[in-house]
Design a protein around this nucleic acid. Sequence first.
DNA 1: CCCCTCACG
DNA 2: ACGTACGTGAGGGGT
Length: 891
Amino acid sequence: MEREESYELSHFVLIDGNSIANRAFYALPLLSTSAGLHTNAVLGFTTMLLKVLEEMQPTHMLVAFDAGKVVFRHSEFAEYKGGRAKTPPELSEQFPLIRELLDAFSIRRFELEGYEADDIIGTLTRQADESGWKTTVITGDKDMLQLVSDNVSVALTRKGVSEMELYTPKEIADKYGLQPLQIIDLKGLMGDASDNIPGVPGVGEKTALKLLREYGSVEAVLENIDRISGKKLQENLRENVEQARMSKALATIMRDAPVDLDVEQTVYSGYDAAAVTEFFKKMEFKSLLSKVKTAAPKDGGQSGQERAPFSFEVVEGGRTDSYAEKLTSPMALYVEMDGDNYHHAPILGFGLAADGISFYVPYDVAVEWQAFREWLADDTKEKWVFDGKRDTVGLSWHGMEAAGIGFDVYLASYLLNATESNPTLDGVAAQYAEVGVLPDDEVFGKGAKRQVPETSVLSEHVARKAAAIWQSVPKLRDELAQHKLNELLTDLEAPLSLVLAAMEKQGVKINRERLLEMGEELDSQLETLTAKIHELAGTPFNINSPKQLGEILYDKLDLPVLKKTKTGPSTSADVLEKLAPYHPIIGEILHFRQLGKLRSTYIEGLTKEIHAKTGKIHTRFNQATTATGRLSSTEPNLQNIPIRLEEGRKIREAFIPSEAGWYMLAADYSQIELRVLAHISGDENLIDAFRKGMDIHTRTAMDVFGVSEAEVTPLMRRQAKAVNFGIVYGISDYGLSQNLNITRKEAADFIERYFAVFSGVKRYMEEIVKQAKQDGYVTTLLHRRRYLPDIKSSNFNLRSFAERTAMNTPIQGTAADIIKLAMIRMQESIREKGLKSRMLLQVHDELVFEVPEAELAVMQKLVPDVMENALKLDVPLKVDVHYGRTWYDAK
DNA sequence: CCCCTCACG
DNA sequence: ACGTACGTGAGGGGT
């Protein structure tokens, strides 16, 4: 049934706001902004909207919402919608945001006190239908299919909101064999659980459709009950005549609500790109920002992919002189490298930017350009950068020096939102700059497909990065000041990045032969173990495969399944330890695992990372990864070298000083987290214990078990230690019971007794959670901030997790602040005193140095002195120092 | 690319 | 009733 083309200029799109918001909310994971605002329903709504605008080209638009508590149907049927779960707060709080979204898009929204969105849409589609307008209704609610006519189509969202299925009378006939209005009869008979429409018991979709095809309507079915086949069905219908009529009434969408709105008031003529961009930035919809320019702009005309115009220059070899005066201060600098690992990556070129100018200097040009290299090394020329440590270390491998880093956008961005680990420049640009930057993956390609793009693409990309840095700095400075984070950046993270740069470049010397020897020893032991395990199993299999191992243990050997993972029975060490008494194979497997780990991760892994030029390992300390403020270490990770078991600890024998006759010196904080807890909780008992210099676990055991120091047994001390760990992690009886292998009841008992004695700790735990709920974030002593969007979640698991995080983060984060301060002071101290000793590694509560013999005495005193006085707390900090010929011997 | 497991604090 | 201890990174297996 083709309609006249010439009059098809109008297209009215009506959106069922509540239905789409609900769909989007349940289809998408619970996303939130760095400030803790939930946005998943908004994002889903936005995706749907962009799709509708692009595909349907509407000329008129309106979004209808439910309004008011008393819906007119309530008076007719009290239980109506009684079965519907209450709207969760995470969704309710998004409705105002969706209204903002629609305002940003200049789309008319409408609600009417006491009416549902259905009724508004029902009424408006009638009006539109009567005036012969082409109309499309967007909803997730199948009931709406009753509105379909020759003029009106209904698009039902599927799979959340990403796809839509369009229904015209033809599709309804094809799918159900019904006229659109008969959808009401269908609901009247089969009911709808989600709307608490009862329908007729025993009648589902199949039966309802069969009846309607034969009789046409609920009324006709009820008039002909006697002729209907099936005794039980007849009986059900007869007993529920009234309920069937009522159900049909409930399913009927009102078409004459007092909607005081003319369809002409819903004209849609495009959106204001600036308003939408601003809204997306607020919502942190970074991936959608690029689509704003693509969508039909309000000022008409251009569409397509082109980004906002960006102009830049490429500095060529022969013409460097004319650029010399453009090397100003301050200036944004970006060093582009080919690859993530800046200890190995070639440098491709430099991006430079300041007000109104932006240019690209290819590496070859930069090397020959004396004025540029001087500017780079001049610490009076201020540079604004993105990851100054990367630049510093990367350049130093190429014999170039960078100095005068005045602002690091990477670190600033991390401090503003530590939850989003490893800020990217494209992300920062989308949030803080006018100029757009493509993600590196899109420019270079990913994985095996990675390659350096052609020069024109590369140069623009790098120039854009520099421009984005330049434009972001003022806004980042403002935001840092608002959050009281300026000092943390300028006095801690920024200077630390240079300390870390020096440590990474210095590297730690490895005794390759020692690693090789250990590897050969492990090879032979593993061979023996493999043979033994295969014999005990009666068949060869891959011991490294949890799947195959599970089959051997639980199917073939029929051992009891104590714990399951998502994919099958667990074979983790804690489970295997419990199974050890059942079969001799278990002990061998545990041993195999232990040695296998040493071989693959440590012997082979570390050997691969020995730098060809230096014979050292140069890790990278990531300064912007963790949510708590700790560092992390990659390629290789030098913060998880074995120590707990003697066989693994031997790996540390391969970590040696880089100069003959020197020593390795290690200094670690004793109980730093519990001392921090004592300070921030103000617990008198805990403070007292530390001031008296007591063994904290023994003291805890004395207090919790009510015994004297002499009466504390090793078991009591072990349990007290676990309780202390639990306290720091944000204790739960379940977690403690797992750790100590005791019942939950016993664990709960321990916790209760602990809190009775350490009531200040208990008060702190309660207060910090309360404060986190109020502010949406927690902070460390130095104002480092972590947002906890889930702290108010209605989901028990998410909320509990956030609560434990609220308890743990100020403790772990403050301890991280302290050792970072100590590192900066330590580096200063070494320089001031003209010492040759070098700081090499940080392992969360430990610093590792290489020290000439002549400086051993000085360093043994200096290091703990600096570390213990890095920050003044209400309890003393204590540091233990050890030294030896290898890291292993520094114990 | 995800899952499991395990090394560290 | 819910089912986790906090924070990381790496290797091997399997899809």
